[in-house]
């Protein structure tokens, strides 16, 4: 009976389930837009790096892109989030969810860039040479020859990156974004019971990532069918 009472306290009293809904909403919003931002940054950075390596031009630009990737990958995301919120936007009145989107988008961009770069590099160099030998420019070689082949290696890895990102948004609780993890914390602080709030959000995260990984493997199968 005690268990049932606790569950009742966690969800029903004072309409506390609304915290979970609010948390779920923010988690999804942050993850979704951070993924889009991360992809835009990632594609951009990967192409800059690949073009600079290919043409041996714009060395400084290449250095900047490389530094961005190294710094993001070399520091904890929680610190990046805090620096963006408490330092960069310290004196600005900004929506905290937007801060989350920016921070996780910038973070994810570095990983996406590496995933795309690895995918491009996995294609045999002879393909680039063959493309050049028929009069193609860099962007034509990429668009018609390399990327259509690399996408098969890139998309599954990208899917895994998105799954990681969904879980990573829980770090947002640290600066007070009411996403899933923070929601469970708020409720627990009122009911003095951690069991149900934590288990409930764990289940929600699990279902979210389960759906995503199903989508990824579905996509993987489709891509394999196309190629064979």
């Amino acid at each position: 009976m005690k268990l049932f009472e606790n569950l009742y306290d966690t969800l029903i009293v004072d309409n506390r389930y609304l915290f979970f809904l609010e948390g779920l909403k923010n988690t999804l919003i942050i993850a979704f837009f951070a993924v889009i931002l991360g992809c835009i940054i990632g594609i951009f950075i990967a192409l800059i790096r690949n073009y600079c390596d290919y043409s041996k031009k714009f060395k400084f630009l290449n250095f900047l892109a490389k530094s961005y990737v190294n710094i993001i990958r070399g520091t904890p995301s929680i610190l990046q989030l805090m620096i963006i919120y408490y330092v960069i936007f310290a004196s600005v009145d900004i929506n905290i969810v937007l801060v989350g989107i920016l921070a996780f988008g910038i973070n994810s961009g570095a990983y996406v860039a590496e995933v795309i770069r690895a995918g491009i590099n996995s294609i045999d160099k002879g393909q680039i040479e063959a493309g050049a030998s028929i009069g193609f420019k860099y962007y034509q070689i990429m668009r018609y020859i390399i990327l259509p082949q690399a996408i098969k290696n890139i998309l599954p890895a990208l899917g895994n990156e998105f799954i990681t990102l969904v879980k990573e948004t829980s770090v947002g609780a640290y600066i007070g974004i009411v996403e899933l993890t923070k929601a469970s914390d708020i409720i627990a602080s009122r009911t003095y019971d951690y069991f149900f709030p934590l288990i409930i959000v764990a289940v929600i995260y699990f279902i979210l990532t389960l759906i995503l990984s199903k989508l990824v493997s579905l996509m993987e199968r489709k891509l394999n069918n196309v190629s064979s």
Binding site: S133, F136, Q140
Partner: peptide
Amino acid sequence: MGMVFQQFNLFPHLTVLENIILAPVKL
């Protein structure tokens, strides 16, 4: 200036016909 390679370097994601017409069409 055409070039033929030791390892052929055909585009594996395209059919034989698509391999041949890729350059003249896209250029």
